[in-house]
Nucleic acid binder design. Structure first.
Lengths: 217, 217
DNA sequence: TAAGTTTTTTAGCCTCGCCTAAAAATATTT
DNA sequence: AAATATTTTTAGGCGAGGCTAAAAAACTTA
């Protein structure tokens, strides 16, 4: 049995360390899940005992195969629930994260399979993140941040990295949505801002915004 | 903040004690939630401190107004989630209880309001139990157990008291469903069995079954 | 490389929700 | 009413998952 708290640690290690491949520092985990480094040390030992994580004192943590699969299963649930909240209950995508943080811990294989079917087996959640299937596999659409685009290039907005309320509200306000085709028409070296063009308008975005928008390549 | 465990105790007291009106014994609660009497004593003190319950040593527990409302809100969530599972995810009604036990503790007013709307504001769950509205009010359709019916009387099956897997499977097997019109056509004093008639058939049910079927009056 | 800084771990403590065993109160029999 | 049985409470303990403060290890930097 993996506890709720353990699931949260696995998720954190997964996200911080390149799907749990790379060693992640105690402090990084502590910051991510808003706890103290000493608590992380305790928990990480427990995860290692359960063979969910690899842990060497003073050298950080990574996930074992089993830990990675468990993390992906939690992420699968999180993203399916987010999709449910947005597509079926009409939440806006900037208010679903906290609720999904709770729902992702509900234990029932059958529930999540049926939810998946009910949502017609979505491959991506409302933020454009891929939803792992029941075996933990997912297809990753190749994309890169607008920061790496040159003038004249274009792509489809398929993912937003920052999922803070503030950022998602900004996108809503500026009518930028997943699926939009975006063309880079200018770049200002002074502040690293970009001018982009969509079907409906031309606008300038700051570097902070650009680095969070991922376009298909 | 009411914890998950506290919510479970409130629910138990509510169900055991006529909506929490009557004093409920420590032992009864312990049995209901599968714990020890000493644990119940501990928790009940905490509920009393939070003014969710009235507790006098050696004399049982009842709910305060606030405790009753909290209990109803948990019950509302439970029944809405059960309705979701059956109506939207195609679960059969005998497999939803455990999952709803988990979902009922998800904390978000907005979620439950939106779920309510999505389900088109149902007044009863799949077992025929009334779903309280957001203020904790509900309309109770008058009903009584088949045990109390006389030969010749009939009513609509609006509620089943036992919600065990075994009983619900029995109903499915015998094609008895909420909403069916049932007429009592015979009673056998020897074993207190009843013969009942529905649109599609005539069958005999034992006392154990009869006492769990509630018909409108 | 030695000193200072930062990170990580250890040690000890806390609360929650549970437990067992024993004591106290209440109910039931005789 | 006394004896017995049952129920409830108290006392003390345990594991999970946190915390603080201090010690230890690992890194920077002079």
């Amino acid at each position: 049995m993996v506890t709720l708290s353990e699931e949260n640690y696995l998720k954190a290690i997964y996200h911080l360390g390149n799907q749990g491949e790379d060693a992640v520092s105690t402090n990084a985990i502590a910051e991510q899940i808003d706890t103290k480094a000493s608590s992380v040390t305790d928990m990480v030992k427990k995860l290692a005992e359960k063979e969910l994580a690899n842990y060497v004192k003073y050298q950080g943590v990574s996930l074992t195969k089993s830990g990675r699969l468990t993390a992906r299963s939690v992420i699968r649930k999180h993203r399916l629930w987010e999709t449910f909240l947005v597509n079926k209950l009409n939440f806006s995508w900037d208010e679903v994260h906290e609720i999904a943080e709770q729902l992702e811990h509900i234990k029932s294989e059958k529930l999540i399979d049926k939810l998946d079917d009910f949502l017609e087996n979505p491959t991506h959640d409302p933020h454009g993140d891929p939803i792992p299937d029941k075996n933990g596999n997912y297809t990753n659409v190749k994309s890169k941040s607008i920061l790496e685009f040159n003038i004249g290039n274009q792509g489809e907005l398929i993912n937003v990295k920052d999922s803070s309320d503030a950022f998602l509200k900004y996108l809503n306000k500026n009518k930028l949505a997943l699926g939009d085709t975006i063309k880079v028409v200018d770049f200002e070296p002074f502040d690293e801002s970009f001018t982009i063009e969509t079907k409906s308008k031309t606008m300038t975005i700051s570097k902070d915004v650009a680095e969070n928008l991922y376009l298909s390549i």
